[in-house]
Design a binder for these strands. Structure first.
Lengths: 141, 141
DNA sequence: AGTATTTGTATCAGAAGGGGTTACAAACAA
DNA sequence: TTGTTTGTAACCCCTTCTGATACAAATACT
């Protein structure tokens, strides 16, 4: 898949916002750091805003800042906010219902899919934005 | 872009092979159950063969069968065999190295990425192909 | 040997989605 | 009012997945 890098960009942008505390940052400025276009950043911020992670203001001296403290935001929320889809897709075209395997495989795969998603969420919940910000600041990967 | 359903198709095909024991199944037959094209199935089987999960034979009465017992194949191996890529992509274009965040964010994200991949593998390792086959047979999702 | 069958693979076309870009309306500060 | 900034629509390009056709190579059967 053309790999979806929205989560990476989102974490990057949010880390920038965490660093700037309560100061509004402009999409132009964020785009320069992420090395992309300002509109791409604004589209992303729209999703983060929708998830109540950031607050934006239009107009002169506008921009975006965090809606909460960095230690009150965890990566799982960010992951959910930028809808990256599932880990793997179910069949593009439904399997044959005339086949004993095809008839039930989708339900089983769906179950496994949910299991994995739970696992991902569990891992991501362990990291707060504050944690990530500190790891980046300390150059500690 | 179309979401990647290769893992789903792979599990489906392997479940079919598990059901047919040591009998060779033809790509045409598998394709009918998966509801796709025989070439798509052969491409998939090529990857599974490369991972030593199946064995194929050309020629009349040819086809494909499992290389191992279904209870000796776990879903993590299948996941690795069909290269589904990472859960999320890192930045398409490298972030600005002039920014304290941009300079280090990729390393931190890579670390998180590996953490998640480990989690997925751990979950998938719990299921054998035999488990999946039985769940499908029993219509139990 | 000869024929039919089946896989392996190359190649192309179409669909879908991500990302980059331009353009412009709406909101807001001064 | 004027200049700035976000929000969003519209479009293009590129990549990847899927479907399809075609054909060589391998194999079984007669």
């Amino acid at each position: 898949m053309a790999a979806n890098s929205q989560f990476s960009m989102a974490v990057h942008v949010l880390a920038m916002l965490a660093r700037s505390k309560d100061e509004n940052l402009k999409s132009d400025y964020l785009a320069a750091s992420v090395n992309t276009n300002a509109v791409v950043v604004r589209r992303l911020l729209g999703q983060l805003n929708h998830a109540n992670l950031v607050v934006s203001q239009t107009g002169a001296n506008g921009g975006t800042r965090l809606a909460r403290c960095p230690n009150e935001i965890n990566l799982s929320e960010i992951y959910k906010a930028v809808n990256c889809g599932e880990v793997f897709a179910l069949h593009a075209k439904s399997p044959s219902k005339d086949c004993p395997i095809g008839k039930n495989i989708e339900a089983v795969l769906g179950c496994i899919q949910r299991e994995i998603d739970k696992g991902i969420a569990e891992k991501l919940t362990r990291y707060t934005l504050q944690n990530v910000f500190e790891m980046v600041e300390q150059g500690k990967a």
